Computed example of a mutant assay.
Amino acid sequence: MQTTTSPPAPVTGDARVVIDDTGDARVVIDDDATPIVRLLGRTLRDSFRTGHAVDALERLSGSVAVRSHNTPQAATVVVGDGAATVTGGVTGGTDAALVVDLDSRVAVVASDGDPLLAEAVRQALYPQPPAWRDAAARFWDLTRGIRGIPDVLVAVALGPDGPEEAHFGAGPDTYRIVGSADQLAGVFTGADYLLSALEHGLRVQGTLSQLSVMTAASWKVRFDV
């Protein structure tokens, strides 16, 4: 679902506007953003782009503190008029608070404060992954210019009907990633760390040098850098 809303007010100082694929300014993050700010900003951008949880965000406004469940990382998400601003740290009071597992697709561990606002932001921070082929195609478009990236990316989805393959690029240098459709979508969208996914059953075929480059590509997509 696509929605039409007014963009957030112009931002001054050390912040930058992230433009989604429809051309609307929907997410604003710190210019010198910390990893948690970049991760939350990218996740919210995915939600706005796909229309996930946007209805609730258009009806509500307020600020939500988001804290990592196992690290000191924290950020503040301010929503209103179908847009969001993400800044590093938490200063002063907020309308709601979420404690999240950043390594598990920003899954909420605990919440407090305004229940409707907390739930709306929780949903927006947990968008449904796209089809694995679409995720792989977008990953390739975003990362193909990285120095040392393999000529060809082969994604293999394992399912009950057997493996399905998708090929991107052309040339002799090939890198293969094999896993379930959900694992592939998670890595290709940046929802999951590549190295963490390897610990949970994802498989790759390539050189250590290629793994290093693909890890960098995974971070680029995850943190929108």
Rank of each mutant, 00 (worst) to 15 (best):
K220Y: 12
L125C: 05
A65D: 00
Y126T: 14
V17E: 15
G82Y: 04
K220T: 14
V27T: 13
G62A: 05
I36C: 02
P130I: 04
T76V: 03
D173G: 01
G23R: 06
N70H: 15
T71C: 10
H69L: 13
R49K: 14
P8D: 00
A15S: 13
A136I: 06
R67W: 04
D21P: 11
S47W: 00
T189G: 04
A217Y: 04
V90C: 07
T91C: 08
A83V: 13
S218D: 13
G159D: 00
S6V: 12
V18E: 14
A25W: 08
L211G: 11
S68H: 10
G171E: 06
G93M: 11
L184R: 02
G93Y: 09
V86G: 01
N70F: 09
R222H: 11
G145C: 10
G93V: 07
R105Y: 08
D31W: 08
A110I: 05
H52D: 07
G89M: 01
R133A: 12
R45K: 15
T34W: 08
G148V: 03
A181D: 08
S68R: 10
V54E: 02
R138Y: 09
A185P: 02
A96I: 03
L211A: 12
I36R: 09
T189C: 04
S180C: 09
R122H: 00
S104Y: 14
A170T: 13
T12N: 13
V28L: 12
V90I: 06
R144M: 12
V28K: 11
A197G: 09
L116N: 15
S212V: 13
A53F: 03
A96R: 04
A124Q: 05
A155G: 10
V225Q: 15
V90P: 08
A65Y: 03
A56E: 04
G62I: 03
A75M: 06
E164P: 03
A191M: 09
A84C: 02
P35I: 01
Y126E: 15
L198R: 13
S63Y: 07
V86S: 04
V213R: 05
Q183C: 09
D46N: 11
A107Y: 05
T207D: 06
P129M: 00
V225D: 14
D46M: 13
A65G: 03
A118M: 03
R45C: 10
G113N: 01
G13I: 06
V11S: 14
V27E: 11
V28S: 10
